[in-house]
Every structure is written in C-alpha cells, then in structure tokens.
Design a protein around this nucleic acid. Structure first.
Length: 422
RNA sequence: GUGGGUGUAGCUCAGUUGGAAGAGCACCAGAUUGUGGCUCUGGGGGCCGUGGGUUCAAGUCCCAUCAUCCACCCCA
C-alpha cells in the first residue's frame, strides 16, 4: 500500500486552500463583472471530442491524455482543457439559438500526462473564459483586458502580454506555403525535433528554442506579412483597442497556434522569474472550432489561466493577501464534567453564525488557552465550577485580556457586540 | 520521452578520511494546582527512500530501483 498521492498530483492542505479560495474569489468577481456566467462541464468527455476539438497533431492529444474505457467500452478521456467541452455544450443544447454572444466561464481540474516540474502538474486547475458568437475585434480586446485585469486584481502587475495574429485559414495557407519554401532548402540543418515538426506543421519550427534552428531559418517570412486585408484590419483594431485602454503588449511573431481552427488573435501572458513554466495564461480566437465539432459557423474567443501558476507567482513574488483567519470564539472547559453543557453552548453560538470551536483532547485549562490562541480565537468562553453553579459565563477578550461575567441568555448578543467593535 | 540534482525526526536541514544518529522550528508537558502570546526547563518522536554489494564496521563508498525537484519538450 503506497501512501502517496499519484505523481503530478498534490493535496491542497488547509493552509494552502485558503490561498486558493482567495484567488478563486477575486477571479470570479472580475469575470462576473464583465458579464460572464459560470458553466459547469463534465470532468470527462468522449475521447472523440478532444480528437476533433483539440486536434490530432497536438502534443496534448498525441501523448498527454488520460484515456480509458468505461465498463461499456466507451472511450472516455479526462478533460485536458475546457474549450472543447464548452463548444460541445453549446452545440448540444442549441445555445447558439439564443442571445449572442454567449459569455461563459468555468473552473476546475484539467488532466495532462506530462513530466511534472515547477508550475506543471498532471492534475492542474484552470479558470477559462469563452465568448461565442461575435467576431468583433473589440470582443478580443475585452477578453484580453479581462485577463490582465484579473492579474492586476491579484497584485500581479509585472506581467508580459505577448500578442500575435495567426490569420484566417486563407491567409495562413499562403503563409504556410511561403514558410515551407523558405525552410525547405535548409531543412537538413534543423534539429531532429524540428525536422519532424516541419513535416507536421512548419509553423511550429518558429517556436524552437535551439539556437542552430534559429540561425538556419534566419530571415524567415513573418505571418504578419501574409495576413489578408480583413485579418490585418482585425489585428490592427485589437491593438488599437488595447492601446486605448492602457494595456501594454508585445507583438510576438513567434507566438503561433498550430491548429487549423485557431484564427486571428493569439495571446499569452508570462510572469518572469517564476521558472520555466512562466505562462500563467493564454488564449486566442478559434473561429473554426464550433463548426469543426459539427455545429454552426459560430466564432469564438477565450483564454485560460493556470491557477497553480498564479499561486506560484504570488508566492515567488512575495505577494500576500491579508490573512484573516481563525475563529470568533473558543469554549474552554475548566472541568471535564461540564463537557455536555459546553457542547450545547458551542452549537448554540454556532447556529447564531459565530465561528466557534472547543478542545476535544482533554487539555488542561491552561493548555486550552494556548490552543485557543493558536486557533486565532478572539474570545474565550470559560466554563468552570463557579460558572455552572451560579449560572453565568465568563467571557475573555483575547486581545485586551478583559474578562466579563455574562448571563447565559446574553451570551450571543454580547459576543456579537464585541465582534462588531473590531 | 531525454538530461541533471536531491532522498536523514511532522517541517527545514547538518552529519568530517567510513568508527555510538544531531540542530532549529513544530508538537506535548512543567515553571504558573482556573487563564494565551514572551522566556526558561524537560519530554515524545528516525527501517538515514527501498533492495543488493564492498568492508571488521556504511547515513557516509559502489550498483540497481523507486520517489521527488529542476530543465528540455509542451503548454495554463
């Protein structure tokens, strides 16, 4: 019996879960303030969905999916991302027949079989935002503004926004051709990985970090120069809108999305200094996706943020949220024979909305005070012989050490009064 | 899938040319017989990742294996 979570998975213990709750709350507030609504999609889908919705040529599909057969021999896959499921749900429920654009967001675990390293896990968490049904460049800008707005709200203003356009299928086809013509004469000089990439998708060669590949393809054509007029206008409008809204970006010719239905705007946000996996979020326009999955010709754009990476960035950069924690009141039982009334009082004040706890290990009165302090209790309710005999309770304020005698019926009101003064 | 680093107490880590397993923090208790934070004192806690090998003797050297971290790759 191995007492260890599977490779690439982690337990989020209470101390960390607090941080998760914090960023999830901030992110959710930002997204909803932009008019997006939450959608909840399955953790697993038919494998087929990802074959078509992510693309067979991608690493995700070819070597990173958790695929299994269920007892009825259906091939299912733990979702490696969320966009395909959203598109599927929109088609399945004919959501495209209603008000457009459809503005959805989702959050939850994703699964990819990959070698774990800093900022990379096999089960990781994303918040994704998708907008379907509009091809307006201003929607592209809104999406990007939302993404960087979330980062700012979290205190992560030191980001780099990379931006590019990969064009539409038409201009990308001509770009692809000119790239092939440029690289083909020098393909022998490419690294083995790139030789393979070149055959599968020449655009991916541009991503290669091997220096010799860079040299070999020096002077390669830029996709920007191959954009058709519509795509060029679209990209220009996105950039202008970002500038008008004070969002700084870096035009990055090497930022490409290889899949056929990715179109026009592509973007990625990096936070330097958090390790090799510095991309905390990324996204783009995917006007071909819904149709590819058998739906109508519905354009779409979206992004996803990696929550582990956001937390890594917050930790690395030393950004802390104000730690409000602990409980309101602790019940100290000075004599074990009063346990039962103590439990009754504990649950009375809990029902009144007061966060409270007591000892269950038989600690001495003094040790219970220490324990109350560790739990961050603001008040301690003392229950001893004197209290029980005379029918009152002693309330100790842990901040100023003041103690007062309160009648049983006045306990809840008194606690609430003291708490309201903070 | 490829490369490198690291596995010793709950946590962070020392451990000399191979010679009786340690510190800090955390936990529990006492100093204070019904009262927290600071201080002092004491205590519980270890298959030294696992399996083999070398040796009179292995936490230490060698091999294997597993785990983990970092990087390549890919992406969030």
């Amino acid at each position: 019996m191995q007492v260890k979570a599977p490779r690439g998975t982690v337990d989020i213990l209470p101390a960390d879960a607090k941080k998760w709750q914090h960023i999830e709350r901030v992110i959710k507030e930002c997204i909803e303030s932009f008019g997006f609504q939450e959608v909840r999609i399955p953790i697993f889908e038919h494998t087929e969905l990802f074959l078509h919705g992510v693309g067979q040529g991608t690493d995700i599909v070819s070597k990173e999916m958790y695929t299994f057969n269920d007892r009825s021999q259906r091939s299912l896959t733990l979702r490696p991302e969320g966009t395909a499921s959203c598109a599927r749900a929109i088609i399945e429920h004919s959501v495209y027949g209603g008000v457009l654009p459809i503005k959805w967001y989702y959050t939850g675990p994703m699964f990819r079989y990959d070698r774990p390293q800093a900022g990379r896990y096999r089960q990781f968490h994303q918040v994704g935002v998708e907008a379907f049904g509009s091809n307006s460049p201003y929607l592209d800008a809104e999406i990007i503004i939302l993404m960087v707005g979330i980062l700012s709200a979290l205190g992560l203003s030191a980001y780099e926004l990379h931006l590019n356009s990969v064009g539409c299928p038409h201009c990308r086809q001509s770009y692809r051709q000119s790239l092939i013509e440029h690289i083909n004469p020098v393909k022998e000089a490419l690294c083995p990985d790139c030789q393979v990439r070149f055959m599968q998708n020449p655009l991916r060669v541009l991503d290669c970090k091997v220096a010799s590949c860079h040299e070999a393809i020096a002077g390669y054509p830029l996709i920007y120069d191959s954009l058709c007029n519509d795509c060029r206008d679209h990209y220009a409008a996105v950039k202008t809108a970002l500038e008008d809204n004070g969002v700084a970006y870096l035009h990055d010719n090497q930022l490409v999305r290889g899949l056929d239905y990715y179109t026009n705007t592509a973007f990625e946000v990096h936070i330097p200094g958090i390790g090799a996996q510095s991309a905390v979020g990324g996204g783009g326009r995917y006007n071909g996706l819904v149709r590819e999955l058998g739906g109508p010709d519905l354009p779409g754009i979206g992004f996803a943020l990696g929550l582990e990476r956001l937390l890594l960035a917050l930790d690395t950069l030393g950004i802390k949220e104000s730690a409000q924690s602990g409980i309101d009141a602790f019940i100290a039982v000075m004599n074990g024979k009063h346990e039962s009334p103590a439990l009754r009082i504990l649950n009375e004040i809990r029902r009144a909305g007061i966060r409270a706890d007591k000892d269950y290990t038989g600690r001495s009165g003094k040790a219970q005070m220490k324990y109350a302090d560790k739990l961050g209790a603001k008040l301690v309710i003392l229950i001893g012989d004197e209290e029980m005999e005379q029918g009152f309770l002693t309330l100790r304020n842990m901040e100023n050490k003041e103690q007062l005698r309160v009648e049983n019926e006045q306990l809840i009101n008194t606690i609430k009064q003291i708490m309201a003064m903070d």
